[in-house]
Design a protein around this nucleic acid. Structure first.
Length: 485
RNA sequence: GCCCCUAUAGUCUAGCGGCCCAGGACGCCACCCUUUCAAGGUGGAGAUCGCGGGUUCGAAUCCCGCUGGGGGCGCCA
């Protein structure tokens, strides 16, 4: 039997990382098995629909390189892939259950349901619907209260039901604790439970891989499959992703949307690699995987059962690793839009577009210092600004006074002006000799020159930096430093 | 409150009865490299394998209980 798996987000907001991790695992499994990866939009709650979120979800998938074989817009015998376009299917299924006597119409008002819930809470009784309308006479009475009923499933009153989860094994539930859940809402839309079961069957889904929060509803689904006479797909419940406080990861923990991570300058390869290792591992030591390698190795057997905390520092490390893997031209291309961005890029005084050849020369110097692409404007600004601002006090090296620093900078300026060969090795030779002549430690002289030339105490190797900046710019900055110190 | 899941260092994890007085990675610390910052290299601190009982010649690994953590209990998904 071929593997058909699906990612079934509801369009209620941005694509959350926890959610996308489910998409990733489904995608990996599909690709591992040469199966089919399906995207299905579960928009059965009209009230929570957020315009643009379908686009955002698909955008996130595309950014990560998770291509889908079937999804919104696909013309196949399984479509459509948007639940609001499949309403007739759910209604037919609900009708079947109604006709069979496996479901019934419930006319109870929301007021009554609320009151029931409150009363149960007050008495500390287990919650759930009291099945009033399961009695036809009661239903008839209630009918007056509510013109638009819901359809409820008749849950067995007792017994236990075991479902099999690939990660956790058999999980048993006590049926007496399950109430008669809603199948069809009063607006005619299906609930998640109905729509999910109907679609997974009709789309011939072989494995349902979803977050662990769904495990408690597995017995309901089991019951529905049985009632319809359908075979239930394999269940694979993925461990939850938690924030540092160990609660389910959400917006309150900061960036939660994949698109936000993209906008913070994370590389898709890095986020993907990091996410894959949240709840899955190959062996003792392997950490770095491309998407293809992940797909080659991914098996559900190696999914972990316990929840994982989303660890920013490790994500940052992965990002640095993937930045370092990039070639000069590749990184320059990736960086350019970040540097040119009107709001978060280089100061507006720096003309756009930026000089690509110049950027390409800078890249080798900054690559291993970058953690996120978004850091680039700040880190590289001194390469582009005419007059990088800095505190003149930084020009005075440890163990020296201002006049001494001034003398050293004057000498450095003179040496710069005299130099014909403006290459890193030549500059280094010249400045080492100069330090010796002045009786300074190289660290002292180089430190002062670094601040003069870059405006900061921490920068890439000095002579490579000077070589890239060019003689004119360096001389000008040294001149300014002499005056400033 | 009830139900379910879960439990190896701060974090992600390896381990599926003896190879483990527990391996890898992030983070942290130190040293090396070095003109600063990174990157890289080397080393280190950090886990009584949540606790208590069993089973076994032998348990992180199997069983039971407890405790902690999480999730679910909607005409939301």
């Amino acid at each position: 039997m071929s593997v058909r798996v699906r990612y079934a987000p509801s369009p209620t907001g941005d694509p959350h990382v926890g959610n996308i991790r489910s998409a990733l695992f489904n995608w990996l499994y599909a690709r591992h098995e040469g199966g089919t990866f399906i995207v299905r939009i579960e928009d059965t709650d009209q009230t929570r629909y957020v315009p643009g979120s379908v686009e955002a979800i698909l955008e996130a998938l595309a950014w990560l390189g998770l291509d889908w074989d079937e999804g919104p817009g696909s013309e196949t015998r399984y479509g459509p892939y948007v639940q609001s376009e499949r309403l007739a299917l759910y209604r037919e299924h609900a009708d079947r259950l109604l006709a069979d006597g496996r479901a019934y119409l419930c006319y109870c008002s929301t007021e009554r349901l609320d009151a029931l819930k409150r009363a149960r809470q007050a008495k500390r009784e287990p919650g759930g619907y009291d099945r009033r309308c399961r009695d036809p006479q009661e239903a008839e009475k209630a009918r007056a209260e509510n013109p638009s009923p819901v359809a409820r499933f008749k849950t067995p009153l007792e017994g236990t039901l075991a479902v099999h989860d690939a990660v956790r094994g058999e999980v048993a539930f006590d049926l007496s604790l399950l109430d008669d859940f809603v199948l069809l809402k009063s607006d005619g839309f299906p609930t998640y439970h109905l729509a999910n079961v109907v679609d997974d069957h009709l789309m011939e889904i072989s494995h349902v891989m979803r977050a662990e929060e769904w495990l408690p509803s597995a017995p309901r689904h089991r019951l529905l499959y049985k009632a319809f006479g359908y075979e239930m797909p394999q269940l694979v419940h993925l461990p939850l992703i938690q924030g540092p406080d160990r609660a389910k990861l959400s917006k309150r923990h900061g960036a939660a949307s994949v698109l936000e991570f993209r906008d913070e300058g994370y590389l898709p390869e890095a986020l993907l690699n990091f996410l894959a290792l949240l709840g899955w591992s190959l062996d003792e030591t392997s950490e770095l995987f491309t998407k293809e390698e992940l797909a080659r190795h991914f098996t559900p057997e190696r999914i972990v059962a316990s929840a994982a905390v989303f660890n920013r520092e490790k994500l940052d490390w992965f990002n640095g690793v993937y930045i370092r893997k990039m070639g000069d031209a590749e990184l320059a291309d990736a960086l350019a839009p970040w540097l040119e961005d009107a709001e978060r890029g280089l100061p507006s005084a720096v003309p756009r577009p930026i000089d690509r050849a110049y950027l390409a020369a800078i890249v080798p110097l900054e690559r291993e210092r970058l953690r996120k692409l978004a850091d680039a404007p700040q880190m590289l600004s001194f390469f582009f600004e005419e007059r990088p601002a800095y505190d003149p006090a930084l020009l005075v090296p440890k163990g020296m006074d201002a006049p001494g620093a001034r003398a050293a900078l004057e000498a450095a300026l003179a040496a710069a002006e005299e130099t014909d060969d403006w290459s890193a090795p030549a500059l280094e030779t010249a400045y080492r000799a100069l330090a010796e002549r002045l009786g300074l430690r190289t660290g002292q002289l180089f430190g002062a020159v670094r601040v003069a030339v870059t405006g900061r105490a921490a920068a890439p190797p000095l002579f490579d930096t000077m070589a890239v900046l060019g003689k004119e710019r360096c001389a000008e900055r040294l001149r300014r430093a002499v005056e400033a110190v």
